[in-house]
């Protein structure tokens, strides 16, 4: 941390300015979403478009907060995303470690086939998946969605983690094995902590994947109480009207939790713990 201050002094302002402006460009749709959430219903399609909102948002937020089950859906989304990430991590870490460290026949083929599961468009898998989940008694249940999301992000997670684990020098494992440590111990206590940024990246991936998942959730979850945020959002789009301000206000509330979460988690990216510790 004390390093930070000396670094600050050497801030590359051109790079910083570039980062600020790129961030602004990337945020434009979000800013427009924010603007649309804070204005009256007619403003979304008004011309000339106002660059600032007219501030008539109390009614909008009252409607979406008290006349829909928004918080309930957000909580469901949060539970589904968190639990499915934990499930995916607990299955994915050992698998990635195995692929990174063990040698066995057809390893290359197996590694590719794991990614191969991502190649069939999910759209055509919906009906067979739904049929399977009905047979398992998991239709209209969040358990089903948790399982599905964990499995959906598993292949990519295994790949991400394998790549990260490959970056941890094998000598450390060997040293530990000579010392008599078990594979499980090495995986859990040495390799994972050393590749924490990667593990966090994979967790963020899994969390956001589940957070944004819509296709399967809408097929599996039918009871309004079971819905996740993405279904709730789509339910605002009616047969005849699209209430822009309500949709954008909901989307805004829906976008914020992961971004705030990321604000807290991202310091693990900078810890620089991995590389230094490994080589040191």
């Amino acid at each position: 941390m004390q390093n930070d201050r000396t670094m600050m002094a050497r801030t590359n302002w051109i790079a910083a300015l570039l980062a600020y402006s790129l961030a602004f460009v990337v945020a434009i749709p979000f800013l427009w979403m924010l603007k649309s959430a804070l204005e009256s219903p007619a403003a979304a399609t008004a011309y000339p478009p106002a660059l600032l909102p007219d501030g008539a948002f109390i009614e909008t937020f009252r409607t979406i907060l008290f006349e829909t089950r928004l918080f309930h859906w957000l909580l469901n989304s949060f539970l589904v995303s968190t639990i499915s990430t934990l499930v995916a991590l607990s299955i994915g870490i050992p698998a990635a470690y195995g692929l990174s460290r063990f040698n066995f026949r057809h390893k290359g083929l197996m590694t590719l086939s794991i990614l191969g599961t991502q190649m069939m468009p999910p759209i055509v898998l919906i009906i067979p998946l739904y049929t399977t989940f009905i047979k398992l008694g998991l239709a209209d249940s969040m358990v089903g969605v948790v399982i599905a999301n964990a499995a959906f992000s598993l292949p990519v997670m295994v790949w991400m983690l394998k790549t990260v684990f490959d970056g941890v020098p094998f000598e450390i494992d060997e040293a530990a094995r000579i010392d008599g440590a078990s594979w499980i111990y090495i995986a859990a206590r040495i390799v994972v902590p050393l590749s924490l940024p990667g593990v966090i990246a994979a967790s963020i991936f899994s969390f956001l994947n589940a957070w944004d998942e819509f296709m399967l959730a809408r097929t599996l979850l039918r009871t309004v109480d079971q819905w996740v945020g993405t279904i709730g959002l789509s339910s605002l789009m009616g047969e005849y009207v699209t209430p822009w301000n309500q949709i954008m206000a909901t989307a805004l509330i829906f976008t914020l939790p992961p971004v705030i979460l990321f604000l807290f988690v991202q310091k693990y990216f900078v810890s620089g713990l991995s590389a230094g510790a490994v080589k040191g």
Binding site: I126, Y130, T131, R218, T219, S234, S235, M237, E239
Partner: peptide, 21 residues
């Protein structure tokens, strides 16, 4: 009274009928 959002409705009915539900 199962409410299904309009944007998903036709798809959903097709899925339900195709999957024997």
């Amino acid at each position: 009274d199962t409410f299904i959002p309009y944007s998903s409705f036709a798809d959903q009915m097709f899925v339900d009928i195709s999957s024997g539900n």
